[in-house]
Amino acid sequence: MDYATVLQILDSALRLMTPLLLACLAGLFSERSGIFDIGLEGKMLIAAFAAGAAGALTGSVWLGLGAAVLASLALAAIHGMTAITFRGNQLISGVAINFLASGLTVLLGQSWFGLGGRTPALEGGARFATITLPGAEALRGVPVVGPLYAEVLSGHTLPVYVALALVPATWWLLYRTRFGLRLRAVGDNPASVDTAGVSVVRLRWAAVAITGVLCGLAGAYLAAGLSAGFVKEMTAGRGYIALAALIFANWMPWRALGATFLFGLMEAVANRYPEIDLGPVTIPSMFMSALPYILTVIILAGFIGRATPPRAGGEPYVKER
């Protein structure tokens, strides 16, 4: 494997990481506030559809992005209603949201576009434009580092850079601001926040809304960045991989970057080399695609590290003495 191949794989890994990272951070906000969210998949899916549909109809990626965020927020609102307002089962709500998105996207897509559930191909202004980082061309000549900068880091679309910037931003918000302190507290012991005179309900709604926005961005990137249009079931389990990454990351932002990059890298490698030939054994592509899930189970089992979710996660908050 030469250096150029390595760079290509890294470049691809960064792109494949982006929806995972955005969804993972989305889940981080929700779960840190004490609301489990296995509906990341559904929110991303409906956002991808909205971006594809609105982008195709208006030709504007920005309107597509807006539609994606709104669609994702709508599903987030359902989750908020069940989890916060009606104190329902958050896991079941997440399952329902995933099916709702899976059904609605095809139902609406078929009746609007008649293309068997896909949206018309997006082109030009309906997709995210690539951004060349300053000095990329000038530095290309520098050995080793130059190509890394020009080939891998430069030349991505806006959501990639937004996702990367969101990692330190999330860390800062979580550990350096009042909102972050309260968010962490409400996920571990909501009564502490309530008795301190801060509204548990409002904090959790804020977290759910952030989750909605980030899933919206992730979905828009899938349809208008990574691909050119929406395809039926295009999230393909990425919401669950993001969830796995969140557990892998122990609900911490920097580790989320590491985990999603790892999973993105695995996908990139699997795409490039469907069968990895290790001499005596050949690793089949199916194994590579299942690897994130296998790794997550191993992490969950506590054989490597230990995942400690927010303590109040999944529990509706009921006032008690």
Binding site: F86, I92, S93, V95, A96
Partner: peptide
């Protein structure tokens, strides 16, 4: 699923 399981209340 939503109404019988999650929005039961």
């Amino acid at each position: 699923i939503l109404f019988t399981g999650a929005l039961d209340n």
